[in-house]
Structures are given as structure tokens and as C-alpha cells.
């Protein structure tokens, strides 16, 4: 297991207002402190929804979920969603992993929809053994 592959990855401890040169010079700011928090994105999603941007709100809710996901997994998942990279069952497994492991149900559902679409439109990986 990689060091950062930990769902307890520390979220920002400091409030944004506390990110100042003073706290920086005191050595109190770590890279973790300058990451956006899950609840912040949930709040931005609510704002977008209220402003009449439901699609943007959905994106922010997925993003809120993805704050729990390590960097490498994000990059790998993007690659799995590109054409002909994954089989149907691999995508379904990925969807379940997101929902269960990262507490990311909306993202999981999004990946499941991709799996269905890729199966219908011929965008899945073709592997030996004909697993689609």
C-alpha cells in the first residue's frame, strides 16, 4: 500500500483565514492544509444549485467525494475511463470501489453509467477471453 493510499488522508486542519505568512513562518502550514475540504465543495455545490446551475452542482458533489481519493488513484481512474481501457466488469468493480471504499456514491454511479454507455457504444477494452 502506498503511503498516500489512505482514506484517512489528512484534510486541511487550518481554516482558510489562518493561512497567512505568519502561520507559514511558524511552520504550521503543511501541504494538507492547502487542500479543499469535502464539506467546502458540498457547500459550493449547494450554492451552484441555488443559483440555477444543477450540472455544476453535481460536478462539485462528485468533486467533494473525490477529496477522499488519493492523487494516483484519481489519475489512474481517469485513464481507466478513456476509450478501450477497461472491461465492463472492471468498470463496475471500480464503481463499487468508489462507492464503498471512498464513500463516493455519486462518482460510483457516474462510473457505472460510463460502463453501461461503453458497453452499448463499443468503448470497452477487448481482452483475451472475451470479457466485455
Amino acid at each position: 500500500m502506498r503511503d498516500d493510499d489512505d482514506i484517512r488522508r489528512p484534510q486541511a486542519r487550518l481554516a482558510p483565514e489562518a493561512i497567512t505568512m505568519e502561520t507559514f513562518r511558524q511552520g504550521r502550514i503543511t501541504p494538507g492544509d492547502i487542500t479543499i475540504r469535502r464539506e467546502t465543495l458540498v457547500a459550493q455545490a449547494a450554492l451552484a444549485e441555488a443559483e440555477g446551475y444543477p450540472q455544476l452542482a453535481r460536478n462539485f458533489r462528485r468533486a467533494a467525494e473525490l477529496t477522499q481519493v488519493p492523487n494516483d488513484v484519481l489519475i489512474e481512474t481517469y485513464d481507466r475511463l478513456r476509450p478501450h481501457r477497461a472491461t465492463y466488469y472492471e468498470l463496475i468493480a471500480l464503481a463499487q470501489e468508489f462507492a464503498a471504499r471512498y464513500d463516493a456514491p455519486e462518482t460510483g454511479e457516474y462510473i457505472r453509467q460510463a460502463a453501461e454507455a461503453y458497453r452499448a457504444k463499443g468503448l470497452l477494452a477487448v481482452r483475451d477471453g472475451g470479457d466485455d
Binding site: T35, I36, L41, N59, F60, R62, A63, A64, E65, L66, T67, V69, L74, I75, T77, Y78, L81, R82, P83, T107, Y110, I111, Q113, A114, A117, Y118, L123
Partner: peptide, 20 residues
């Protein structure tokens, strides 16, 4: 497909960036 993407892959990327 020539651009090596799908609507879902790009949409996922959008969320990935926003998550950071």
C-alpha cells in the same frame, strides 16, 4: 475517440480537478 476520450472520462477529469 480520436482524442482518446469519452464524455465520461472528461467529466471525471473535471471533478478530479475541482476536488483539488
Amino acid at each position: 475517440r480520436d482524442g482518446d476520450d469519452t464524455p465520461w472520462s472528461k467529466g471525471f477529469l473535471a471533478s478530479a480537478y475541482a476536488s483539488r
